[in-house]
Structures are given as structure tokens and as C-alpha cells.
């Protein structure tokens, strides 16, 4: 029998572990990661391109809440993270850069309502 397996096993006994102790430390997420969206309503021109290109139809164009309607009279994207496949096409097509993908990946929740991102919270 070749000694390869044993050498590999013993080598790994003294090697640094591949994993990290998660809550205390985490592997850094690189730039350009496709995580949760960040929507800047002041940049939005309500063109609706994001809602048209979304392959999963996760984006609806909705009106702002009553109290903000004077300042934001048009329709703005409401993103349903439950339907989203994180393809970043909405970020790429946005002519004003109003939608950006962040590095936030901690999206699991028990509250189904919290997966819907309203344009104004």
C-alpha cells in the first residue's frame, strides 16, 4: 500500500484548520458579492427597468406610503427577497445606480413579511 493517504492524514493533523470559528471570526466576503440589495430612493427615476428585467419577477413597482407621497410621487421598486435569485441584473440595468447589491448574506428569518423590502421603510 502506498503511504500517500497516511502522509496526507498526518500532514492534516498538524495543518491549520480550513474552517474558522464562525461567530467570532468569518471568512471575508470579496467585493462584488451579490448579497442583499440596497435601494437609494433619491437616485431612482422610476423607469421600471429593474422590474422588467428581473427573471423571477421579484420586483414590483409600488407607490410610496401616504406620508411620503408628496416628496416621492412616482412608483418605486419593492423587492421580494423570497423570490430573488440574486443575479444582480437589476443592479446592472439601473441607469442611475439606485439599486446596489451589498455583501449582506445574513437573510434568514422567521418572519415572512421581513423578506419584502419596501422602497421606504
Amino acid at each position: 500500500m502506498k503511504m500517500g493517504v497516511l502522509a496526507e492524514v498526518f500532514g492534516n493533523m498538524f495543518a491549520k484548520p480550513m474552517t474558522v470559528r464562525f461567530p467570532k471570526e468569518a471568512i471575508p466576503i470579496p467585493d462584488g458579492y451579490r448579497g442583499e440589495h440596497e435601494f437609494n430612493i433619491d437616485l431612482c427615476i422610476s423607469c421600471g427597468l429593474c422590474s422588467k428585467i428581473c427573471p423571477n419577477r421579484a420586483i414590483d413597482m409600488v407607490e410610496a406610503p401616504e406620508e411620503y407621497r408628496e416628496k416621492y410621487p412616482k412608483r418605486y421598486p419593492r423587492i421580494d427577497l423570497g423570490k430573488c435569485c440574486f443575479c444582480a441584473l437589476c443592479q446592472d440595468i439601473c441607469p442611475k445606480g439606485a439599486i446596489k447589491m451589498t455583501k449582506n448574506v445574513f437573510l434568514s428569518t422567521f418572519d415572512p413579511k421581513s423578506v419584502i423590502k419596501e422602497p421606504i421603510k
Binding site: 470579496p30 462584488g32 458579492y33 451579490r34 435569485c85 441584473l89 447589491m101
Partner: peptide, 25 residues
């Protein structure tokens, strides 16, 4: 893959019609 395409398993159409969606970082 995570560094180049932005996702670990699913590149979300990184290789798209016309080329690739973003340059090598």
C-alpha cells in the same frame, strides 16, 4: 468563483451572450 462572479455556486449568468458580465478582478 465568489471573487470573480460574485456567487459561490451560481454565477448568475456570468458567462453571458457577448462575453462575460464583469472583468477579472
Amino acid at each position: 468563483f465568489e471573487m470573480v462572479t460574485g456567487g459561490r455556486v451560481y454565477p448568475a449568468g456570468y458567462i453571458c451572450p457577448g462575453g462575460v458580465r464583469r472583468d477579472f478582478p
